[in-house]
Simulated assay, not measured.
Amino acid sequence: MGAYAGRGVHGRIVELLGRRVASGELPEGAVLDLRALGAELGVSMSVLRESVRVLAAKGLLDSRQKRGTFVRPRAQWHLLDADVVRWRASGDDTARLMADLAELRALVEPAAARYAARRRTGTQLAELEDALDRMARTRGDPRAHALADLEFHRRLLAASGNELLARMDLLVAPGLVERDVLVHSADPAADPVPAHRAVLDALRSRDADAAEAAMRALLAASDADVRRLTAPGPAPSDRKDRT
């Protein structure tokens, strides 16, 4: 069910309504009939109201006198919220989400790699190596692998020496985890380590040009993999390096 699966009935309703909104099953402006919804789902009004409050905090729903509870315009959704990202990734919005993520990462991570090659410390290099080792050990577990991959990229952003770049992980992290789970669930045998190793080797030698180029190559391969998976029709099985 997702992040709310272990939170009882309330969590189940948050997940269900969140997915319905993010998928467009409940479109912008749609008014929710809470009594009918409660009857459909077999839950009390108090559970529904609490679930609505959670989704309102994420920008998906709103409640007003005389208008009732309704779906807010997409422009008001908290698109960087980890749950909103996950709900979008599980529905028909996957391709758009992943394309937006790829563009964002292409703007941020090659520059971060360039700075990191010049500024990284020995400790940061060791942390990146550790994250890469965990990626290699978790190849058969898409979720664990995704978290190790995320740690590598977080460490790289931190190694840039730029505090604002380092906090860009807040923008990248939710989508990156879902991207990794999508790709590595489709092809668990894929080996992402060589592409990451090329970045790490460039950081170790303090070669800024090579670090930027390696990151661009890694991101290009990542984007190509996702495009193949989210394109209409069967996905080809020739994927190799992913991030």
Rank of each mutant, 00 (worst) to 15 (best):
A126K: 08
A126C: 06
E127T: 13
E127M: 07
L128V: 12
L128A: 06
L128M: 04
L128K: 00
D130P: 04
D130H: 15
A131E: 11
A131V: 14
L132F: 00
D133W: 07
R134L: 10
M135Y: 09
M135L: 14
M135T: 15
A136D: 15
R137Q: 14
R137H: 14
R137W: 13
T138A: 08
R139L: 07
G140F: 05
D141R: 04
D141C: 03
R143P: 02
R143L: 14
R143S: 08
H145V: 02
A146V: 10
A146P: 01
A148L: 04
F152R: 02
L156K: 02
S160V: 11
G161K: 00
N162F: 11
E163M: 13
E163S: 12
L164E: 15
L165K: 03
R167N: 10
M168A: 09
D169W: 13
D169L: 04
L170E: 15
A173S: 09
P174M: 04
G175C: 05
L176A: 05
L176P: 00
L176K: 09
V177H: 01
R179F: 14
R179Q: 12
R179I: 11
V181N: 00
V181S: 01
V181Q: 01
V183T: 09
V183S: 01
H184G: 03
H184W: 10
S185C: 03
A186H: 14
A186L: 15
D187M: 12
P188G: 04
D191M: 03
P192K: 01
V193S: 06
H196V: 06
H196K: 08
R197I: 12
V199K: 05
V199P: 00
L200F: 08
D201I: 09
D201H: 05
A202F: 08
S205W: 13
S205N: 06
S205F: 10
D207S: 06
A211W: 07
E212N: 01
A213E: 12
A213N: 04
A214E: 09
A214G: 06
L218Y: 15
L218F: 15
D223C: 04
A224C: 05
A224D: 09
D225I: 13
V226Q: 02
V226D: 01
R227E: 13
R227P: 00
R228W: 12
